[in-house]
């Protein structure tokens, strides 16, 4: 909180122009309806009228009760879900803007490789790979050497409190909390500009949760924009700069900054 105020106080005129360009993601009035063709074409509303924006180095927390569509919103940004209507404008470092809701599949694939990361709620890896390989693989896929990638993976696993003796075992044999930390390490190892986090601390004890939150704070300092789903108010206050309360159907939605709430 103090840090934020300090940063704002130092934001002189030159930084105002910069702040105009700090937009990372601008979600405008998106909605998602699932049509189940094989169930008499029944329509299920995932979410509707969702609008928010996130700047670089900022964490937006999505809040709201279970089943309100928070995870679906993250999947829509990642393009696992197709949305209609609305637009999801991704601002690239070179100044160009891409609408993730309508751009081509190849473009989405390129963005996923280099710019947009997603830490899903559950770890999905093949049972034949070790924890170290699972974490290192996103870096290897970007062309980094196996050795450098493994070193970085070991550093992250250690940082998140995974014991070294587990590094060479399939993470699918791990406990829920350990799997979640492997998943987070895997999600952050390759530098991305926008990170989507689906309940990254859901099944973690306090100590592990602290480590994850500290890691996320570090990422913010590196100017990474993040959208996360958290249920714990304390965690939201600690890590998020603003919240977006997702609500059912057409009820009004609120965006608020943590500073405003605190005030």
């Amino acid at each position: 909180m103090k840090k934020m105020k300090k940063r704002n106080m130092h934001a002189g005129p030159s930084l105002i122009r910069q702040s105009e360009n700090r937009m990372k993601l601008d979600v405008q009035n998106i909605g998602k309806t699932f049509t189940l063709h094989n169930r008499n074409s029944v329509q299920v509303c995932g979410f509707s009228n969702v609008s928010f924006s996130v700047n670089r180095g900022e964490m937006l927390a999505l809040t709201g009760p279970s089943g309100v569509g928070k995870s679906s919103i993250l999947k829509a940004i990642y393009r696992t879900y197709l949305t209609n209507p609305g637009s999801i404008l991704f601002h690239r470092t070179d100044g160009s803007v891409i609408n993730l809701a309508s751009c081509g599949e190849s473009q989405v694939l390129n963005l996923r490789r280099r710019e947009i990361g997603f830490v899903t709620q559950f770890l999905k890896v093949l049972p034949r790979i070790t924890a170290l390989q699972a974490v290192a693989s996103p870096l290897v896929e970007l062309g980094e050497t196996e050795q450098t990638s493994s070193l970085q993976a070991a550093y992250l696993l250690d940082l998140l409190g995974i014991r070294e003796e587990l590094f060479h075992i399939s993470p699918l044999t791990f406990s829920g909390g350990e799997q979640q930390r492997v998943n987070i390490a895997r999600g952050v190892i390759a530098p991305k500009e926008l990170l989507l986090l689906d309940e990254p601390t859901a099944s973690l004890d306090e100590k592990s949760s602290d480590r994850v939150l500290e890691l996320l704070m570090e990422l913010k300092k590196k100017d990474i924009a993040m959208i996360g789903i958290f249920h714990d108010k304390g965690k939201i206050e600690r890590v998020a700069d603003k919240t977006y309360n997702v609500q059912r159907e057409d009820s009004p939605v609120m965006t608020s900054s943590i500073q405003q709430e605190a005030a």
Partner: peptide
């Protein structure tokens, strides 16, 4: 579509 989209959000009745 993207493979994860086809598997998680299939649009066509046959894909579903």
């Amino acid at each position: 579509g993207l493979t994860d989209q086809i598997l998680e959000d299939p649009q066509h009745p046959y894909t579903q």
